[in-house]
Design a protein around this nucleic acid. Sequence first.
DNA 1: AAGAACTTTCAAAAAGAAGTGAAAGTTAAT
DNA 2: ATTAACTTTCACTTCTTTTTGAAAGTTCTT
Lengths: 171, 171
Amino acid sequence: MNAEDMNLEDGKKKFIQSWGTMGSSWGINRTMAQVHALLLISPDALCAEDIMEDLKISRGNANMNIRKLIDWGLVYKELKPGERKEFFVAEKDMWDIARCIIIQRKKRELEPMLRVIDEISSVEGTCPESEEFCKVVKDIKVFSSKADSTLDRLSKADAKWFASTFMNMIK
Amino acid sequence: MNAEDMNLEDGKKKFIQSWGTMGSSWGINRTMAQVHALLLISPDALCAEDIMEDLKISRGNANMNIRKLIDWGLVYKELKPGERKEFFVAEKDMWDIARCIIIQRKKRELEPMLRVIDEISSVEGTCPESEEFCKVVKDIKVFSSKADSTLDRLSKADAKWFASTFMNMIK
DNA sequence: AAGAACTTTCAAAAAGAAGTGAAAGTTAAT
DNA sequence: ATTAACTTTCACTTCTTTTTGAAAGTTCTT
């Protein structure tokens, strides 16, 4: 083992911490991302209590964020026979994780825009101002519809295809 | 003109407002996105004063956000002959706009992760915990390097290629 | 080099987002 | 039906981010 090697505990801390920071810049809240990180690197399922202790967060907070992760499809409930408690495991396949995130971000970032743009497309006019306006709206509409359907297909594509075709496609 | 047609003023307001909301969920601050929206739909260059008035924001705020938009490459300074004042115009080509955003988001969302993952890769071990940890870190590394180079190429691709090839590629 | 016309900075204030924890709600076993 | 083991909710607090505006800094013009 090299002197520069990082030990497991420090590595874990750093990972959870960074996944959290990352999360915020991804529009995911810090704690949600940290819970996800914790579950990702845990070899077995954890219960709410474990998570609260590890991350030093309250019950309510833990619960909220676990719930959100389940909604997103990034985490599953796991019931152990004979135990009342609920345990949680993270989805560990990178492509599935990416897929979940693509779907959620599309929902939050793209779809609302498409709706507004549709509403707004009924503006029409002949002055320079309205012409500029309509042109911009039109361009956004065309562009974002394309992006929308591309992301749609991408999120439905399977992992294998993704790895082999998409990633290399752009050569 | 239909009864349901939206008039220009309302359309503009709605557009600026929504682009702003959108911005927040994109990790771009609301005001920055609104300034961008305003410039996007304006047929000619606006000065700081115009922007302050239109959006009802302070001088400092306007200045900061214009500056950030310029840094991102979404807005250009325009100097009118004979005028001291600086005017600003938005980049209006959708593909150029997308490109700027891809570059910035990659910088903020992906690159920091790659750095941390690199640091962390020096952990090694033999217990189940460290094995799980190393596996996850490895998977993330592989995946995010691929994503990184794909985005890189994408951001260097030109508009024409983008429109014709990429968008339809996934058929 | 003095003045006018703008632009930038920054510390303090306001707004907004996230976290807490105790109380209320559920559910499974007896 | 009761209880015990969990989960969820929500009014309140704490932390973060954004905005303000006045003061300081620039840079053209004469």
